[in-house]
Design a protein around this nucleic acid. Structure first.
Lengths: 198, 198
DNA sequence: TTAGAAAATGCACATCGTGTTGATAATTAA
DNA sequence: TTAATTATCAACACGATGTGCATTTTCTAA
């Protein structure tokens, strides 16, 4: 499949048009007519490749996330034993992750923006949560008992995601190694410490 | 304005229909025809009260947020001087806030859900951020210098919001006083502490 | 209680985006 | 060059939209 050059070119143009239109008028407000017009592709041709605008969006997302998984697979080795080793390993993983995010920055930014796809963010949060479960063996025994487990888990995972959201939206984003260091530092800082409120 | 009983009844039914339909098919997929049919109101009548479904949504949101502000106004007194006093004051404020959120739980939950309005959540995060700025005089001098200020600020504010999100979606939610205690406790816990990862 | 005001109804209309179809033209791979 | 693939174009029915207007129902105030 996708042997023909025309196929590849058409789908690339449709994807580019989608990203452009998400940034200008937002996904909710754009139509298939908009996409095909912006891409310079006949509207009938759009329906040869995709069912509707949601189908196109889904395939763009699946594609970019599949590539992310390929990148991460390289670091899916065995987990270190000591905590300092694990922290160093995590920092390398963050660096690798953000290197890929930087490469696909425009697409991630559009999808994650307010005009983009809310479920993309939702899925991202879920992915981070699952990653934590599998990697750090996060279960009740590993969680604090000072607050209920569901709140603890949400705070642990979402704080990671919050940093991504700031990074993807800022003008001059930090380099992958910088942001990896920031993340690792933030893991030891409580909100009251961040605010010098003690 | 709105003296007539019919006005109030109609707008109430339209609002109820909106919440119902958000929960069933999601805001993006519901139509004005759906709303008026569910409400048992003529479609033409809908347009007498609202411009479109977005207008109805906006007015429901503005109304519920205005009422929240009324509730919070009562606690807008002077800020205590010592940090322990400020923490106790904050806990009372959280308790008051969640008492109102509990009262309007169904509406908040629908709007905040994945099928609801993403911008409602976005505005909520902004509101929390602004509240922090004005109340805790959050400026660069008050923030840690261990990580960049924009990340610190996001982590401080969003962790509050994350707790709200868990609370609004769980089956047997904690009482206002309980959740206020949980929040206050969480302010002193870093992610690595929450995960017993030290 | 009743007259007049206000609100809701029912229907028609033009508009727009949708998804599909079938005929035609252009491009590719062999 | 040829056969297959792909893109184009025009046309179609459908459904939701927003508006207008005449009619009916309901409420309010005197």
């Amino acid at each position: 499949m996708n042997k023909d050059i025309r196929n590849i070119r058409t789908e690339f143009q449709l994807k580019q048009a989608l990203i452009t239109l998400i940034n200008s008028k937002g996904f909710n407000n754009l139509t298939v007519s908009d996409i095909s017009r912006t891409a310079g592709i006949n509207r009938g041709t759009f329906y040869i490749h995709y069912l509707d605008k949601y189908d196109l969006l889904k395939k763009v997302e699946l594609n970019i996330l599949a590539n992310l998984r390929v990148v991460l697979k390289k670091d899916y080795a065995n987990i270190s034993s000591t905590i300092p080793q694990q922290k160093a390993q995590a920092e390398r993983l963050f660096s690798t992750t953000f290197a890929y995010l930087a490469r696909e920055r425009a697409t991630f930014k559009a999808l994650a923006s307010e005009k983009g796809d809310p479920s993309f963010l939702q899925n991202g949060r879920m992915a981070v949560k699952n990653e934590f479960h599998s990697r750090l063996k996060l279960n009740n025994g590993y969680l604090t008992n000072l607050i209920p487990a569901d709140y603890a888990e949400a705070l642990i995972c979402n704080s990671l995601f919050d940093i991504f959201m700031i990074w993807i939206n800022k003008k001059d984003p930090e380099s992958p190694t910088e942001i990896a260091r920031i993340i690792n530092t933030s893991r030891s800082l409580a909100p009251n410490q961040l605010a010098n409120f003690d």
